Simulated assay, not measured.
Amino acid sequence: MANYIKELRALVGHQPLILNSASGALLNQHQQVLLQERTDTGNWGFPGGYLAFGESFKNALVREFQEDAGLVVQPLQLLQLSDQLQYTYPNGDQVQPINCFYLVTYVSGSLLQQVTNETTRLAYFDLNQPPTFFNEQHAAMFSVLQQHYS
């Protein structure tokens, strides 16, 4: 998937792209949600990412959760379809992500303990204590999750 976006960026530079993405909310037994601290901004977000060409939202979500968090999950319910945000990454890349935000359930695996190219660390957060999110879309998803459980 990274090669697909890398190839697009080689052609268009930092010009805006519309990309499809999937993100998920995994809650533990204490009703805390798992978030990832991102390597690019140092802020927090939901595990997830962009779809590879030909990939479904649900399949991308399962793949991204495994890559970002070390966990196999199953999407349970679509919580939000988001298409309003425009975001510029620290490197200047501009995107309008069309994101499907799912509630997921744990299937198998254990949380990653090492830094990856996208994840500095993973932590569970109380729904009444949001961290600093890396963009408005993730803050809005946290609000949707709070409303879902209120």
Rank of each mutant, 00 (worst) to 15 (best):
M1P: 11
M1Q: 08
Y4H: 12
Y4T: 15
I5Y: 08
I5H: 10
K6C: 01
K6A: 10
K6V: 06
L8K: 12
L8G: 03
L8T: 13
R9E: 08
A10N: 15
V12H: 04
V12F: 14
G13T: 14
G13N: 08
G13C: 11
G13E: 11
P16R: 14
P16S: 09
L17H: 09
L17K: 09
I18A: 09
L19S: 10
N20E: 15
N20F: 07
A22F: 04
S23H: 08
S23N: 14
G24Y: 06
G24E: 08
L26H: 03
L27T: 15
N28V: 03
Q29A: 10
Q29D: 15
H30Q: 13
Q31C: 04
V33I: 05
L34W: 03
L35T: 05
T39M: 08
D40C: 06
D40N: 08
G42E: 05
W44V: 01
G45L: 07
P47H: 08
G48K: 04
G48P: 03
G49I: 07
Y50Q: 15
Y50A: 06
Y50G: 07
L51T: 07
F53W: 13
G54V: 04
E55Y: 10
S56Q: 09
F57I: 00
F57G: 00
F57K: 02
F57H: 14
K58V: 02
A60V: 05
L61C: 02
L61W: 03
E64Y: 05
F65N: 02
F65C: 01
Q66N: 11
E67I: 06
D68H: 13
D68A: 11
D68C: 09
G70Q: 03
V72L: 07
V72T: 13
V73Q: 05
Q74N: 06
L76I: 15
Q77I: 14
Q77F: 05
L78P: 12
L78D: 01
Q80E: 11
Q80H: 08
Q84C: 02
Q84Y: 12
Q86I: 12
T88V: 12
T88D: 00
P90Y: 01
N91E: 12
N91K: 12
Q94N: 07
Q96C: 01
Q96D: 00
P97C: 02
P97G: 07
N99S: 15
N99Q: 12
C100A: 11
F101P: 07
L103R: 11
V104A: 00
T105Q: 07
Y106I: 04
S110H: 09
L111F: 03
L112H: 07
L112D: 00
Q113M: 04
T116I: 05
T116M: 00
T116K: 00
E118W: 15
E118I: 13
T119E: 00
T119W: 00
R121M: 03
L122M: 09
A123N: 14
A123Q: 15
N128P: 01
Q129F: 08
Q129L: 09
Q129G: 03
Q129S: 14
P130D: 02
P131T: 07
P131R: 11
N135I: 04
E136S: 13
E136F: 11
Q137A: 14
A140P: 06
F142M: 04
F142I: 06
F142V: 09
S143V: 11
S143M: 10
V144R: 01
Q146M: 06
Q146R: 13
Q147L: 04
Q147Y: 02
Q147I: 04
